[in-house]
Design a protein around this nucleic acid. Structure first.
Length: 309
DNA sequence: AAGACGAAAGTGGTTGA
DNA sequence: TCAACAACTTTCGTCTT
């Protein structure tokens, strides 16, 4: 939901977005978070740490199990742990040993987290992501670690996957290419872990909306706000005409922006638009053609041409 | 000369048997 | 697991401004 009145105090941009669900306002130009009421994720893993002991029988995938999955060497201890629980009331030594293990395991996780969150922060600041996204991805990563999803994958790739997921959820999409460039992880690797992690954690991802890209592309091309809103309008028509499903959202966004720029006499070459959108001219041309066919925009373009003459 | 356009062949990922 | 398939890219030649 756009907020037309306010301006971003940081960059003066008008692309302020209110995310009602999260209760925050984000500037899409510079990533500044004006109001951030995100829940502190720290609470989540404390919950795991405390609840672990008594509920062994209740949850198969509860915290203690996943803690043990974190490290291969600890798996054997897990077996013993089952026995220990039966004896716990009788045998205090074993009980304390159990405590000791839990302590060690949780510090191992914390160490890993510390490392990973550093990496996450680095990538995040490289991409100039809002803080809310950073925290969201940190939460996702923490969950992933607790579930033992990192095993068999590099820490960095899971970080990248978590970031990608968080971006999508916050409607501040970054293309896989950008994540890839920032993190040094291959595109398909990020995609794989992203899919894996979101599936395992049951995170629902809304299909990314081309309109979410408009603001960023538009400011990269230094286009006027009018052009930008026109582009979004075009996008809406395109979606009604079912031109958007199955296509890459960046390509559609780029084409809409290109057309919109033509209409407002702020012509950019296909090359320029293609570069900031991370697609080729050909893709823009194809989408552009579809837009013209479907939305009878030729007239508007001709109008502005005549005006210029 | 640069940009726009289109055709043809190639690439990586998804889907369905 | 493999082949068909759609979207997208690369490359290149031609047309337009």
């Amino acid at each position: 939901m756009a907020i037309g009145v306010k301006k971003c105090p940081e960059c003066g941009g008008i692309n302020l977005f209110l995310n009602k669900e999260k209760g925050e306002v984000i500037c899409r130009d510079c990533g500044l978070v004006l109001e951030d009421k995100m829940v502190d994720f720290g609470q989540e893993w404390r919950e795991f740490g405390e609840g672990g002991e008594g509920e062994e029988s209740k949850r198969r995938t509860g915290a203690p199990m996943t803690y043990t999955q974190y490290d291969q060497g600890l798996v054997t201890k897990k077996k013993k742990k089952g026995d220990l629980f039966k004896l716990a009331s009788k045998d205090r030594n074993k009980f304390f040993r159990l405590r000791k293990w839990q302590y060690r395991i949780s510090t191992a996780i914390e160490r890993n987290l510390k490392l990973a969150l550093g990496e996450l922060k680095r990538v995040s600041s490289y991409l100039k992501l809002p803080k809310s996204v950073e925290e969201e991805s940190a939460r996702i990563y923490t969950l992933a670690v607790q579930r033992g999803l990192v095993r068999g994958r590099s820490m960095e790739s899971v970080v990248a996957g978590a970031l990608y997921a968080a971006c999508r959820r916050h409607e501040v999409p970054r293309a896989l290419d950008e994540l890839s460039e920032a993190s040094g992880i291959e595109k398909k690797e990020i995609g794989r872990t992203y899919r894996f992690v979101t599936r395992e954690l049951g995170i629902t991802i809304l299909p990314s909306n081309p309109a979410d890209y408009i603001a960023r592309f538009s400011s990269a091309l230094k286009l006027s706000p009018e052009t930008q809103s026109k582009a979004i309008e075009i996008l809406e028509h395109a979606q009604n005409a079912e031109l958007t499903s199955g296509r890459g959202p960046t390509g559609i966004a780029a084409a809409a922006l290109y057309v919109s720029a033509l209409i407002h006499g702020e012509k950019r070459t296909q090359r320029e638009v293609a570069d900031v959108a991370g697609v080729t001219e050909v893709t823009i041309r194809n989408r552009y053609k579809e837009l013209l066919d479907e939305l009878k925009l030729e007239k508007e373009i001709k109008k502005t041409k005549k005006k210029k003459k």
